[in-house]
C-alpha cells in the first residue's frame, strides 16, 4: 500500500504544483473572480452545492454505465462477426472507421433532436465514442492467438466455434482490457456531450446552466466531478482485470 502511494507521489506533486500556481494567479487579481475563480473557491462552492452536483452526477453515471454496457455488447458482437467472416469485415470496417471521424459536437444535438431528452440519445452517443476501441482491441487479440494452439485444437477435432471459444477469445482478453481502458476515458465525456446538447438533468446540462449564469466556479466543480468519475472507472478496470484474468498474476 505504501509503495503504491509512493508511486502516485510524482503525479500528486505535479497536480499540487499546478493548483498552487492557479491559486496564486487567481489571488493576484489580474482577472475578475467570475472569469477565473481560484481553486479554493471552486472547491468551497462545489461543496456548498454538493446536493445539486450529486443529483446531477447520478444521471450522468447511469447514462455512462448503460451506454458503455451497450457498447461492450455491440463492440464484442461486431468483433466476433468480423472474425468469422471476411465479407462482414470488408463490409463493416470502412463504415466503423468513418463513424469515428464524425464530429461529436455536431452530431450530439442531432441525436437529441431525433431521440429526445431521455436516456436513448445518451446511450447512443456513449456507445458511438466507445465501441470502436473495444471492437478493434478484441479483433487484434483474436489475431494474436497462437497458430500452434489452434492447430492442436483442430487435431482434437474441435469446431471453428470451439477453437474461437477455447483459444482466440481467451487470448484476446488482455488486449480487450487495454482497449477498455482507452474507451472508458471517452465514456463520461460522451455522456456529458449528450447532456450538453439537451437533457433534464446531468453534469452536462448542469455545466451549461452554470455557464449561462456566469458561475464559472460551478462549471469547474462539475468538471472536477466528471474527472473523478472517469478516474474511478479507469481504476475499476484494473480491479476487474485482476479478477477476470487470474493467470496473468501467476
Amino acid at each position: 500500500m505504501t509503495s503504491r502511494l509512493l508511486r502516485l507521489a510524482p503525479a500528486l506533486a505535479l497536480v499540487a504544483l499546478i493548483v498552487l500556481a492557479w491559486q496564486l494567479y487567481a489571488d493576484s487579481g489580474r482577472l475578475a473572480e467570475d472569469v477565473l475563480p481560484s481553486p479554493s473557491r471552486v472547491v468551497s462552492q462545489g461543496w456548498e452545492n454538493r446536493g445539486d452536483l450529486w443529483s446531477n452526477t447520478l444521471p450522468t453515471l447511469r447514462a455512462t454505465l448503460i451506454g458503455f454496457g451497450f457498447s461492450l455488447v455491440v463492440g464484442f458482437l461486431l468483433s466476433v462477426a468480423i472474425d468469422f467472416s471476411a465479407i462482414v469485415r470488408r463490409a463493416f470496417m470502412p463504415l466503423l472507421i468513418v463513424s469515428q471521424t464524425l464530429p461529436i459536437i455536431a452530431i450530439a444535438p442531432l441525436v437529441v433532436i431525433w431521440f429526445g431528452f431521455g436516456l436513448a440519445p445518451k446511450i447512443l452517443l456513449v456507445a458511438l465514442v466507445t465501441f470502436f476501441a473495444i471492437t478493434v482491441s478484441f479483433s487484434e487479440g483474436y489475431r494474436a492467438a497462437e497458430p500452434e494452439a489452434e492447430q492442436l485444437l483442430r487435431s482434437m477435432g474441435a469446431s471453428r466455434w470451439r477453437v474461437f471459444r477455447s483459444v482466440r477469445l481467451p487470448t484476446s482478453l488482455p488486449y480487450f482490457f487495454a482497449g477498455l481502458r482507452i474507451s472508458i476515458t471517452y465514456a463520461v465525456v460522451g455522456a456529458i456531450f449528450a447532456e450538453y446538447a439537451g437533457a433534464e438533468s446531468g453534469l452536462g446540462i448542469y455545466m451549461q446552466t452554470a455557464k449561462n449564469s456566469f458561475r464559472t466556479d460551478l462549471v469547474l466543480a462539475a468538471v472536477g466531478v466528471s474527472a473523478l468519475l472517469t478516474l474511478t472507472l479507469f481504476a475499476l478496470t484494473y480491479v476487474v482485470e485482476r479478477i477476470a484474468l487470474p493467470w496473468t498474476r501467476a
Partner: peptide, 14 residues
C-alpha cells in the same frame, strides 16, 4: 491420432 506439437501449447488461462 493424438497429436503433441513442438511447443507444449499449454493454454495459459487454464
Amino acid at each position: 491420432f493424438a497429436y503433441m506439437p513442438q511447443k507444449d501449447v499449454l493454454l495459459p488461462w487454464r
